[in-house]
Design a protein around this nucleic acid. Structure first.
Lengths: 390, 390
DNA sequence: AGCGCTTTCGCAACCGCTCTCGATAGGTGC
DNA sequence: GCACCTATCGAGAGCGGTTGCGAAAGCGCT
């Protein structure tokens, strides 16, 4: 049954152990060890999936794959007829270049990674759309990762992006992110990184931000102008710059207008819904209620509105509220939420522009740039105690 | 200056044309054509980006790359010490496998593609999250494409996914999608495809749907039970099954309860916001107003509420409204929107489970499966004319 | 016809990794 | 000490592209 692959002998064959799961044989005549070649011939094995390659085009046209490659790239040293034949055949065979092979060969994936903490609220989706609007025309596509506000997931995301050999990364960190070791990987590997919105200290990279300090200041100023004096702040995590800046804007606005700062009127939350509810409750169950709340973002402000309403607190007469971000929901809720609109689309576009600039830069030393965009105060019912003077 | 690469001769050198942008030379003595080898030695060129490869590990440990590869994969025929050394070195060098190379070698990318029309509303984001919750543990990551409700973009998306050599695709088509040629590509290439929610006819693939007919029927039935008799339908595109099924459920509920069907009470919209507003206006400016509206989805229902309110129409007493999907916004708006909740998370999970099943199936012939999930009627203020009997 | 040059293409080496096949050193049983 | 095994590792061929380099054919000119 078993024949020696060398002499064809059948009788002098002995079994000789198992090697890597396969039976191994020994021919006494040849003094030769061998394993049985796999029985199923490669022809037998039905290739269920096969996408056309340049080799398919090449053999169909009886030319070399180099020529096909160059024709597809529009190289100059290809005859016009040849190129046309190649392009036609490529179209006919429904050819799509294998980006894996292309990336491997060129050591570039033409892919950008984008890490966001979530995309349930519409803040990040809009930014992603803006980002794609710049990335796609430039020949890049985008891998979207959502860290789900979890540091572990965020670390896993960075690893996936590293493994995918993305050419650049855009990121907004989670609320729990305090250490940035996992982002240093990109720098060590020479992969440009641009952060936006949620950043934290300790990373010397380009950034795209909105003027959080200024926005917070103007939001609080607006409350003051509405006659509020006991203004609370539902603050964000202080490991994030957004959290710090908006708190600072709040504080400075109070000071500027000579209002006292009460510690019990500043509560922090970790950007989750339940935490927002807890924080809002804490504020609304104080012995002396605040007459207004400046929330670090709209989702928190909306939770506050809901809880206030459930407690029968009148908005804005008893409690004025200002948020930050201008979520679509904020216009729908009643009363409409006064908030600071961020140029979402522009953030997305700017962040990718900065990134592409760094990717395509020849310089070895890159000076990180920081773009700061302006916010716009949108006044709605939630804060309007006095008639609009305009 | 120029030396012949063969004889080293200097004087017998003549220029001989330009080849591919480079000066070419000819040595008369050797009768030999050559071009100047590129001056900048490979050492000079600073490799700004280099990520560690298995070769780096192999040479650091003085072993072969095969061994490193097998050690990393946890193969059985590797010495425990060797494996440990490899793993340690991999960790030390911060090794991340090159997914491009891996995909190329294995002809599998371990990537799933997901095409959605948009992710501004929270419907698709929740589904994506559910999908990732199944895909990631199974060792796949996900490329998210949004077609932005544009057929051209959708076609471009399919091409990108083809080029990325995804192992499978999950898709929900745009409102404009009538032809499915661009999805046939996947079938021809043997790439499994599972569609969900928004499907259209003419593609024999697995599907995950909610029972749109049943949901619509129950939504309309609810309106009837609330005493409505002149029930309008803000319908979706009829090229989509969702649109058809929900319309059919609406019609059958009317018939079942002996209510007449008025053509002017059925208006169609193309899933864009402006179109929803136009349709709602059309309904609310009829000579005889409907006493209720069943909208094909929540965004349309919400636009209807806003327009009705702006016209001073009382909800639900003058106009009862039922939507479909249970967007988070629907709970916030006033009055709360009665709607049919879909098991978003479950849709996402189911769709990927089906897909993975097909990817990992050995069978050549796959019988497409269809999973139909149930919806849940959530009654809120927008439709509640009678006290709840419970 | 011969020279010089251009146009057009093929060969082959990578990119990083997997996987098949095979080799070798040492262990075991008699 | 010898036959027989087992455990462990290396060599090398792809995967589907890109690209440097060289070759062959054809052209115009003298």
């Amino acid at each position: 049954m078993i024949k020696c692959v060398k002499c064809g002998e059948v009788d002098a064959i002995a079994k000789s152990g198992i090697i890597r799961g396969k039976q191994r044989f020994y021919c006494k005549r040849c003094d030769y060890y061998f394993t049985q070649p796999s029985l199923l011939s490669p022809e037998t094995h039905h290739h269920r999936r096969h996408q056309t390659t340049i080799m398919d085009i090449a053999s169909a046209l009886q030319i070399s794959k180099s020529t096909v490659s160059r024709a597809l790239q529009g190289h100059s040293d290809i005859n016009a007829n040849t190129r046309k034949a190649v392009l036609d055949m490529a179209h006919q065979l429904d050819y799509q270049p294998n980006l894996l092979a292309l990336g491997l060969a060129k050591s570039r994936s033409f892919t950008l990674g984008i890490i966001v903490p979530e995309f349930i609220n519409s803040f990040f989706p809009y930014i992603i759309i803006g980002a794609q609007q710049v990335a796609n025309p430039a020949g890049y596509h985008v891998i979207i990762c959502q860290s789900n506000e979890s540091l572990d997931t965020e670390i896993a995301n960075t690893n996936v992006l590293m493994a995918s050999r993305v050419d650049g990364v855009v990121a907004s960190v989670t609320a729990e992110t305090k250490s940035l070791d996992h982002f240093h990987k990109f720098q060590r590997a020479g992969i440009p990184l641009v952060m936006f919105n949620r950043i934290c200290d300790g990373l010397d990279v380009s950034k795209v931000l909105v003027d959080d300090y200024d926005g917070a200041y103007r939001g609080v100023e607006h409350l003051i102008q509405q006659g509020c004096t006991r203004i609370a702040h539902l603050a964000g995590p202080q490991n994030l710059q957004v959290g710090k800046q908006r708190l600072q804007g709040y504080l400075d606005a109070l000071r500027k207008y000579g209002l006292p700062v009460y510690d019990e009127l500043i509560v922090y939350y970790n950007l989750t819904k339940t935490s927002a509810q807890a924080a809002a409750r804490q504020l609304l169950e104080l012995p002396t209620l605040p007459d207004s709340i400046f929330a670090v973002n709209d989702p928190a402000a909306i939770e506050t509105i809901l809880i206030a309403k459930s407690k029968g607190i009148k908005i804005p007469s008893e409690l004025a509220i200002v948020g930050f971000s201008n979520e679509p929901t904020s216009a729908l809720i009643e009363p409409g939420l006064t908030t600071l609109a961020q140029p979402l689309d522009e953030i997305g576009k700017t962040v990718v522009q900065l990134l592409l600039h760094e990717i395509e830069s020849e310089d070895d030393v890159l000076v990180p740039r920081t773009e700061i965009l302006k916010t716009q105060l949108i006044v709605r019912g939630s804060s309007l105690r006095k008639p609009l003077v305009s």
